[in-house]
Design a protein around this nucleic acid. Sequence first.
RNA 1: GUGGGUAUAGCUCAGCUGGUUAGAGCGUCUGGUUGUGGCCCAGAAGGUCAUGGGUUCAAAUCCCAUUACUCACCCCA
Length: 419
Amino acid sequence: MIKTIYGTKDILPFEISKWVFLENMVREYFKRFNYKEIRTPVFEETILFSRGIGESTDIVSKEMYTFLDRSNTSITLKPEMTASVVRSVLEHSLDKQQILSKLFYISPMFRQERPQAGRLRQFHQFGAEAIGVNSPLLDAEMIVLSYQILKQIGLQKLTVKINSLGTPEERSKYKDSLKTYLEIHLSSLSEDSKKRFYTNILRIFDSKDGGDIEVMKNAPLLIDHLGTGSTEQFETVKSILSELNIPLEVDPKLVRGLDYYTHTTFEILSESVGAQSALLGGGRYDLLAEQIGDRRVPGVGFAAGLERILLACENEKLFAPESDKIDLYLIRLDKELLVEVGLIANRLRAEGLIVEFDYADRSVKAQMREANKLNSSHSLFIGGEEYKDGKLLLKNMNDGDQVVINKDEIHKILNVIKG
RNA sequence: GUGGGUAUAGCUCAGCUGGUUAGAGCGUCUGGUUGUGGCCCAGAAGGUCAUGGGUUCAAAUCCCAUUACUCACCCCA
């Protein structure tokens, strides 16, 4: 038996309505904020991600689906969307056509990680990127927009975390002072953190190792090394958000795992999912365009995990079990009338009714049971004496009332049902 | 990559300390008189008890391995 690949899932018919609901909600909100949808290919040249996201990041160093195609080009299935969107903006010079490109997407992503609750190898994200203008208003807008979407969906147990990573210069200065501090304590760090010391030193803040946490308590914080410009920008973002009553938690240890972030970074967490509690994350990336292109273009964005949001929704019981309905189920009384039933169904479907009938040549009882199971508002009996007299029997499945309809007045069925 | 857990019908799960033909609920199908659903009732189909070894007179049950799934670490949405 061939099965789905490890870490991938089918989304079956009975759960599609939840996805459509979320997608509609997301589209509606992006529309209000005037973001335009963008779709990019599922695969790109590997170098886009290795350069954009950063060689030393976990995503690039061990999680990408990378392969050589038949002409020996290194191809990678997109592990995230920001690099692709920025690439697209640069490639098509959207940044030269307008001062600001406000874009959103809903798309599958691929990362070869070990699956667990809220983490799959093919997963879905929606997100936004505002590219071209460096304004704290946009940083704030990303958080407002994403927070409101989650709220609108009905999620309750949310935490918004925010931090600033400053400019590259501030960051590298800060890294130096962090290095100086950690060199003294290097021997007492965990093995993982020792590695991080060389690869991605900021991540040591995220360590859950007791010894590491002890050491990091007294470590210098980036937030104290920001210049006045960065501090001002950060303060502006925070004050806009507090004016809008977005509950903020400043987390100086919030260090995101992608290299391109500058200034504002943020995450929204939920208590209603498993250990992978980040529903969405994002931040400003003023360096990225230059990394993968030929010019400096500022940007800010976020990405949200659909599966995690769905998981949170389920745990907070936000989805009422909704039952599908159909308008009409055709009951075939005589076996010979197979073709006629098909013709009538076709005519009524052309009128816009949702019509179903039995394809399996089953008994009337079975057909009625099916009509009931499908939640059909009416059923139409085709056959017998009435049919010979040019008549059909239309039955209301709720109250059991039946009316006679002339065969050549099928449009009347429409009136009764849609009444 | 590292650790823990689980694996019995389409689904959710029983099956106690090893002992006859492996069960339930739901779902599916059929029927409860000629052509009428829901509720109810009756019946049927459906399982190499994940796979391979081992212990034993006897294994779904105990042991080992493999595989799959799952949760957690790492990291991320």
